[in-house]
Each structure stands twice: as C-alpha cells, then as structure tokens.
C-alpha cells in the first residue's frame, strides 16, 4: 500500500507541476508555492463550459427564483412578464398553508431510510462477487436487473403485485396472514421504501464494486501474510478502501431518492395518499394540476435550500469535495 503512495503519480508530471519546479522561479521558503500555474492560468478556456453552465443551470435557477416571487398561475401565464411581484408571499403560503413541510419530512426520511438500508446490501453484494468463481458473471448480471429496469416498469409491476387482490396478498392469505392495503394508508410509506430499496441497491453495489477493484493485489497478499482472517481483513483492510466510493454512493443515492418522481407517481397516482405525498408529487400537483407555478417554484426553492444545508455539511464531513492533501 505504501509503495503506491511513494511512487511518482501521473499527475505529478503534468505541465503545471513541471512549470512550478522551474529553477528560475523563486519561491519564499515555508510558503505554499504559487507558481505560474495559478497566476496566469488560461481561465478564458473555461468560457465555453461556463456559458453552457450559465444557460443550463444558472439561468433556469434564476428564473425559478424569480418565478417564486411573482404571482404566476394559469391566469397570468400569458402575460408572465407583467405578472404581479408579490415578494415572499408564495413562501409564506408554501410554509404555512400547504403540505410542504410534511412533504419534505416524508421525502428526506424516505430517502435516508432507503439509502441506509441499501448500503449494507450493496456492499455485501459487491464482496460476494469480488472473488472469481464459477457463475460469477451470471450472479453479477442478475444483480443488475433491478437497476436496468426503467422506474416506470418497476413501479407498474409492483403496483400490480400489491393490489388488494394482487399476488402478494393472495400469497399472504394462503399463508394465513392478512395482507391489507399496500398502496394507500400507513403501509404505503413502507411500500415506497421497499420498492425504492429493491430498485436502487444495485447502484451502491456498482460503486462498492468499483471501490473493491481499486484494492491492489499486494494488499490482499500482505494481509494474508499477516494472517488476517476474513472478518479482520474485511473490517480493517478492505472497508477503509470503500470509504470514498460508498460515501459518494450515499450522497448520490439519497439525492436520487429525494428526486424520484416516477416511482411514487406510478405506484400511487396523483393526488397521492397523504402518507406518500412526497416532495416531487407535491410540486407536480401544485404546478400541473393546480397550475400555481409561482407557489410551486417557491416550494422548489425552499426544498433546495433545506436539502442543500445538510448536503453541504455532509460534503465537508466526508471531504468528498477536497483533494488528497487537503487542498481544495
């Protein structure tokens, strides 16, 4: 493991690094080198990307924020430029007299539960398919099935199975249990979590697998020489390697769960039962069934902020946004 760190890395021989090491360049001792690379970097090269980002992300974001401040609905849509500016009234309405806060709570709790359950599943599946054995390719393919199925198909199939007279309830009845209602009422929340877990764990599996494959062969050899048994090896040698990929998986998976619209929409329809009135459904109904575009924009902005705060803290905590060596 140590050898890989001391070996020259490809990035060390990059032109920037080379320029910084030019003998003509004087750098005060003790201070971090600030070579040519940081002074006269050709930042204008970023313009194409920057323009694209402006058009694709910043302009819509700005328009979204602006929409949240005006009284935009079906009546004002046509003259949207002159729609009345109403300040934070949409925000007040979203927070006080809509389902927004409850929906955010439902969405976030559902997303976190789904992620927390899928991580051990995904990592376990990755470990199981790490070593070569007969039939491993088949197992790996089977593991990917839920991931390659479109969300719409997954939701339709589960909706059919979970009908009051569907196959799940018929099976439960045959086993002497009462299935009850899965697609409405308090169970609906757990149905959503269950189906999401079913559909999403291979994502964790994929990232964990990539983490495992990054473990050098020598590491396995060294731990074998040290006599580490499988659990100790896994716990103290292999898992540390997975910290990065799995942290990233945690982040991406949680955001995907929060943003998943298709699954609850197809499973439960709109208007959704109150136990699964998650954020995307609420925003959708407000926008496209009540046509309150301003209000739904405010909801989207509030949820963006509420989700961005823990996200930021998490990013700092797991240092995903920081390069090796602590340099940003």
């Amino acid at each position: 493991m140590a050898s890989s760190v001391t070996e020259p890395r490809p990035s060390d021989s990059s032109p920037a690094a080379g320029a910084a090491a030019e003998p003509g360049e004087t750098t005060p001792p003790g201070k971090r080198r600030k070579g040519l690379s940081e002074k006269n970097r050709p930042l204008w090269l970023l313009i194409p990307g920057g323009l694209l980002m402006t058009i694709v992300i910043l302009v819509p974001l700005a328009m979204g924020i602006w929409m949240s401040l005006i009284d935009l609905d079906q009546y004002t849509l046509r003259q949207w430029v002159s729609a009345e500016f109403i300040g934070i009234q949409n925000y007040i309405e979203a927070a006080l007299s809509s389902e927004l806060l409850r929906s955010i709570w439902l969405s976030v709790s559902f997303a976190v539960i789904s992620t927390v359950v899928t991580i051990p599943l995904g990592v376990a599946a990755a470990v199981v398919t790490q070593n070569a054995y007969r039939g491993r390719a088949v197992v790996r393919s089977i593991f990917l099935i839920p991931y390659v199925l479109p969300s719409f198909v997954v939701a339709s199939v589960w909706r059919t199975m979970l009908q009051p007279d569907g196959i799940v309830n018929v099976t439960l009845t045959n086993m002497g249990m009462d299935g009850g209602l899965w697609l409405n009422g308090p169970n609906a929340y757990w149905t959503l979590v269950w189906v999401e877990i079913w559909a999403a764990w291979p994502f964790i599996y994929l990232l964990a697998l990539s983490g495992l494959q990054a473990v050098d062969h020598e590491v396995h050899e060294a731990s074998a020489l040290d006599g580490a048994l499988w659990w100790n090896k896994l716990r103290y040698v292999i898992f540390p390697y997975l910290k990065g990929p799995v942290s990233l998986a945690f982040l991406l998976a949680t955001l995907n769960h929060i943003n998943n619209f298709t699954l609850p929409y197809v499973l439960f329809g709109a208007p959704a039962p109150s136990d699964v009135n998650v954020l995307p459904i609420l925003v959708y109904v407000t926008s496209f069934q009540s046509f309150r575009f301003g209000l739904s924009a405010a909801m989207a902005v509030v949820s963006l902020i509420l989700i961005a705060i823990p996200l930021f803290i998490y990013l700092r905590a797991v240092r995903l946004d920081v390069h090796e060596g602590g340099k940003k």
């Binding site: 970023l46 920057g50 910043l58 302009v59």
Partner: peptide, 16 residues
C-alpha cells in the same frame, strides 16, 4: 475574462 463571461451570460439571458 470574468467580465466577458458575465457580459456574455447577461446577453444570453436577455436574448432568452
């Protein structure tokens, strides 16, 4: 360059 970027972005927004 930053100013150019800003102006370009503003111009595009206005056009849109």
């Amino acid at each position: 360059p930053r100013r150019i970027g800003t102006i370009a972005a503003a111009a595009i927004s206005v056009l849109m």
